[in-house]
């Protein structure tokens, strides 16, 4: 056991400050454990979100010493004993109180995405869909997403430029990719990827991929392929001519 120094953001939408806490830390603790101990012993009304405490639900996203992380999966022994640990709410979304932010904007984006539209003709005689594992491997990667919104937090377009009206953010780019690459899905999503969801805004700095606690290759496996599909559909001069030609022949 050792006494450690913590600085936590305390405040709400009208403002706030970093406050000092000194607290005993036991072997094996993660940052969320320490926050809970501070809450139980020194600051009963300290607001923090958490649920599973095992990296499965994505509730406890915060910025620890400036890095967006899940506090339940950040071990105290990642930091040296004399370091003060700074914990702030994720910056891209408005603070509600202390470490809790208003992430409702993300739920609004999800509603804008055309729902899964399966091709029911693909059922076999027993009423089962047949899909091979290798055909679903790549969308299963996107479906590992725990909606922690750390990728949304570091996305420059959302964080630094606050262009939430222009770009849907990496979380929903992988959501769209998981539908667009689904072997059974029939909806056209590429027009809306360009027009409504702002795929052109992303300049592939890969910051989202770096912070993903599920190691989803957001940029390489979802965003770039979607951008390529947009290019194919709207900007490929040869394909453009070819389609014109086909149309005329019809």
């Amino acid at each position: 056991m050792a006494l450690r120094n913590f600085k936590l953001f305390r405040g709400d939408k009208s403002g706030g400050q970093m406050e000092n806490y000194q607290i005993e830390v036991d072997k094996g603790m993660v940052v969320l454990d320490v926050i809970h101990r501070i809450q139980a012993e020194q600051a009963n009304d300290l607001a923090v979100r958490w649920n599973c405490k095992a990296g499965k639900c994505g509730s406890c996203s915060v910025e620890i010493n400036g890095k967006p992380k899940l506090s339940c999966m950040t071990r105290m022994n990642e930091y040296s004993a004399e370091d003060t640990i700074y914990v702030r709410p994720i910056r891209t979304f408005p603070v509600i109180k202390d470490l809790v932010t208003d992430v409702s904007w993300n739920y609004e984006q999800n509603k804008r995405i055309t729902p899964f539209t399966p091709d029911t003709k693909q059922k076999n005689k027993n009423g089962d869909y047949v899909m091979m594992q290798e055909d679903v491997d790549r969308i299963q990667e996107f479906r590992k997403c725990i909606e922690c919104y750390l990728c949304q937090d570091v996305c420059h377009i959302l964080r630094d430029h606050n262009k939430k009206d222009k770009f849907v953010g990496p979380r929903f780019m992988i959501r769209i990719a998981s539908l667009d690459m689904h072997p059974l899905d029939t909806a056209d999503r590429i027009t809306s990827v360009k027009e409504d969801f702002g795929s052109g805004m992303c300049n592939i700095t890969r910051c989202c991929t770096d912070v993903c606690p599920e190691d989803i290759q957001i940029t390489d496996n979802a965003i770039i392929p979607l951008k390529e599909r947009v290019v194919d559909k709207f900007y490929d001069p040869f394909l453009w001519l070819w389609r014109k030609f086909l149309k005329r022949n019809k």
Binding site: P118, D128, V130, V136, I139, Q140, R143, L179, H182
Partner: peptide, 19 residues
């Protein structure tokens, strides 16, 4: 369970492509 697949769930597959 089949209904979940209809709604977009992607279960692991058998060799023959079933759930």
């Amino acid at each position: 369970v089949r209904e979940l697949e209809e709604w977009g769930a992607v279960f692991d597959r058998t060799q023959s492509g079933l759930i």
